[in-house]
Design a protein around this nucleic acid. Structure first.
Ligand SMILES: NC(=O)c1ccc[n+]([C@@H]2O[C@H](COP(=O)([O-])OP(=O)(O)OC[C@H]3O[C@@H](n4cnc5c(N)ncnc54)[C@H](O)[C@@H]3O)[C@@H](O)[C@H]2O)c1
Ligand SMILES: NC(=O)c1ccc[n+]([C@@H]2O[C@H](COP(=O)([O-])OP(=O)(O)OC[C@H]3O[C@@H](n4cnc5c(N)ncnc54)[C@H](O)[C@@H]3O)[C@@H](O)[C@H]2O)c1
Lengths: 231, 231
DNA sequence: CCTTTCTTGTGAAAGGTTTCACAACACTGG
DNA sequence: CCAGTGTTGTGAAACCTTTCACAAGAAAGG
């Protein structure tokens, strides 16, 4: 039980658990900077607005990292979670579609700090191809395969109009990419061995709209929180 | 059973159900444009990669909109879902923080089409205050309360640096706002009667990272899909 | 009008996630 | 070394969501 998590393990880890690990990671980073040595599941839960049992259960899927009577060692646990999430290394990211959203992403310095470095840009607009964004040249879509492979890209972000998103995804998957972050408000069809996630702002706004119409002025109305305990 | 959903109903609707309604809505919009009269739960499920039972169950929480043997009337169902989600009306949105992400949002024309019109911009950078983005003037944060009330803002988007996000949220809530869409990668503390959702790209990237490290090259690897059946 | 075919709406079963509750253990102070 | 306190790790219970399975109803065709 002490040797922890193996990638080959067959246990099924829920999406919610992984998302909570991301949060734990951020909180632990703060605690580490504030020179905390250990933290209890109770205190961690308080900061995350979860139950202590939830915290312990989440961590227990991957090993036993705490000390009874004491809590978890902040530094080690942070490192362990980084390892579980695979963010203890650098990932090479490419971005396709250097428009409004795409430009914002390129200018965002936090990604690099978190180990996700945008190494390649693509567009099909002749006016944009060859131009320089924060030191990165925008490539022609025709060079997609060659460049993705040359730069050993792991993750592709897609910020093109919704109408062409599926085509681009198909191209990217054909080039061997297994992980995609999509910003177009469409549901993508991909093979079973390709992972993708979508950021869909319209959907979140619709959720807020639903909440305002249906859940507002309830007695002790409930918090809706994508960040919180419920997935 | 035929009079359908009431906002005063006490049944608990899950987040997943609401997200799926958003998807159904989009698919139904497409079907309506393609002049479909009716659609069965089976066909809708096929397009959404869900089970027919899931579709029927989701809809059944709000009433019974179908005809046995025939399916659901596309036009009516779309209208009904719009009503449930509260997107059959216009919402007034304000955006705080006109930086990289904020500017991208202002330039995004789809939001207006979907009933979410950005009516107000705020920043605390003197160089930005007074400037004009797509016809909207950037206001000083000091005018927050006055302007939010004058423009009858329903939803506030927060695109400021993570360090100040909580302060801004507190201000906004104090002005009476009940719905917030947050882009800063922090967990916000808000009262129980305030709804908020976060777009957290770092978290989605971390999920992809986890998938690449832990789930890749599994036998018949599983698709991770925020859009799909699991919330 | 009756039979066949189709599809909804929904209780009940199955499956998944969170919370509970407590044994096991670690540290502290006497 | 022992009693007392605190906290983990984890089966089991409680809770929540999805899937199953079928009765009920609608249309079509003879
Ligand atoms: N801007 C926002 O705030 C926002 C919000 C939510 C969702 N989105 C979504 O993000 C996506 C991008 O939005 P945007 O506002 O940045 O749009 P945009 O039009 O500013 O940018 C799209 C970019 O993609 C490029 N492009 C178009 N077709 C291409 C192709 N076949 N191959 C390569 N590049 C191509 C265009 O040249 C352009 O540079 C859209 O799907 C949009 O729905 C944007
Ligand atoms: N740019 C991205 O791609 C990206 C991606 C993920 C998350 N985010 C998050 O979105 C937020 C904004 O990112 P960005 O890249 O647009 O940053 P930015 O620095 O470009 O923009 C922030 C804006 O907020 C304004 N601001 C700062 N303090 C303020 C205050 N107290 N009141 C009002 N306005 C204030 C600044 O003047 C600036 O215009 C950040 O929290 C960031 O972490 C951005």
């Amino acid at each position: 039980m002490t040797e922890g998590w193996k990638a080959t393990d067959n246990r099924k880890i829920s999406e919610s658990t992984i998302h909570r690990l991301s949060h734990y990671y951020r909180t632990l980073s703060v605690l580490e900077r504030e020179d905390y040595e250990t933290i209890s599941s109770r205190e961690l839960a308080r900061r995350e607005k979860l139950t202590p049992a939830q915290v312990r259960k989440d961590l227990s899927f991957f090993g036993s990292f705490g000390t009874r009577g004491l809590g978890y060692p902040v530094k080690d646990l942070r490192a362990k979670i980084a390892n579980i999430l695979g963010i203890d290394r650098a990932w090479n990211v490419a971005l396709i579609g250097v428009g409004n959203i795409g430009s914002a992403m390129v200018s965002y310095k936090e990604f690099v700090k978190q180990g996700f470095a945008i190494k390649l840009l693509f567009d099909n607009d002749q006016r944009k191809i060859g131009s320089n964004h924060k030191g990165i040249i925008v490539h022609d879509m025709r060079d997609l395969e060659k460049e993705l492979k040359a730069k050993k890209i792991d993750i592709v972000m897609i910020a093109v109009p919704a109408t062409v998103a599926q085509n681009i995804v198909d191209d990217v998957v054909r080039c061997g990419i297994r992980a995609i972050l999509n910003f177009a408000p469409v549901k993508l069809k991909v093979a079973d061995n390709v992972f993708y996630r979508s950021e869909n702002m319209a959907m979140e706004l619709e959720y807020l709209s639903f909440a305002l119409v249906n859940l507002a002025n309830r007695s002790g109305g409930k918090k809706l929180d994508k960040d919180s305990t419920n997935s």
